[in-house]
């Protein structure tokens, strides 16, 4: 299992496109928003936490189809399915690799991008915290979507259509934590709910992902 994780990380770093692309996309979203809504810093400060959450969600979405598509094309997925690693574990490892290469860099970069958006001072902690708690759920849910669409040629658009509605609860609670934090309100309730969603998704969704992957492999 460690072997699978190191291989996926190595592939993401070497193949290019996987590792930096999500971050670059996040940066572009953050840069484009002021062009769209105007440069008033008061307005930007108000919507900054929401933009950061939307940006990371979209950046996550962008790299989802890479989770299984490459392994599917070159036949590795068949070989993995016959390997002694249970498919549920393989799926979880893949989600973890996706989070390490996409989610974690977004969490780390969020404060810098928050500065660009004039995020109010007390907002930094909650934004980073909510992303840290929420992005694992995004990766795990996205892995489920990627497993669903792995056999479909040019399934990228379908993948977004399937995954985005599933992202709604995570986005709502995550953005709520960030917003309340920026407004210096108590954010413990949405934070606990967000953590609950992440834990539930991590615990249960790999079974669904492995099941659909088995269906797609036959």
């Amino acid at each position: 299992m460690i072997a699978l994780l190191t291989r996926d990380l190595r592939l993401a770093v070497r193949a290019g496109g996987g590792f930096g692309l999500g971050l670059a996309f996040f940066l572009i979203v953050v840069v484009l928003v002021p062009f769209g809504v105007g440069p008033q810093s008061a307005l930007l400060a108000k919507i900054a936490s929401g933009i950061l959450w939307l940006g990371s969600l979209l950046a996550c979405l962008l790299s989802l189809d890479r989770i299984f598509a490459l392994d599917w094309e070159d036949g590795s997925l068949d070989l993995l399915a016959t390997a002694p690693v249970p498919l549920e574990a393989a799926v979880s490892i893949k989600a973890l690799a996706h989070w390490l290469t996409t989610g974690l860099p977004l969490v780390v970069a969020a404060p810098v991008f928050g500065m660009l958006l004039n995020l109010p001072g007390p907002g930094y902690g909650p934004v980073v915290l909510s992303l840290l708690l929420g992005t694992p759920a995004l990766s795990v849910i996205g892995t489920f979507g990627a497993a669903l669409t792995v056999g479909i040629k040019r399934g990228g658009l379908l993948l977004s259509l399937l995954v985005l509605p599933l992202y709604v609860p995570t986005l709502i609670f995550g953005a709520e934590v960030a917003r309340r934090g920026a407004d210096q309100m108590d954010y413990s309730t949405p934070m606990l709910l967000l953590a609950g969603i992440s834990c539930g998704a991590i615990a249960l969704l790999p079974f669904a992902s492995a099941a659909v992957l088995r269906v797609n492999l036959r």
């Binding site: 509605p165 599933l166 709604v168 609860p169 709502i172 709910l193 659909v212």
Partner: peptide, 19 residues
């Protein structure tokens, strides 16, 4: 399977939206 997973998330969304 999508319907099963979707039902859970639809329910979650319902409460999330209320919140």
């Amino acid at each position: 399977i999508l319907c099963l997973v979707g039902s859970v998330f639809a329910l979650l969304s319902r409460y999330a939206v209320n919140f």
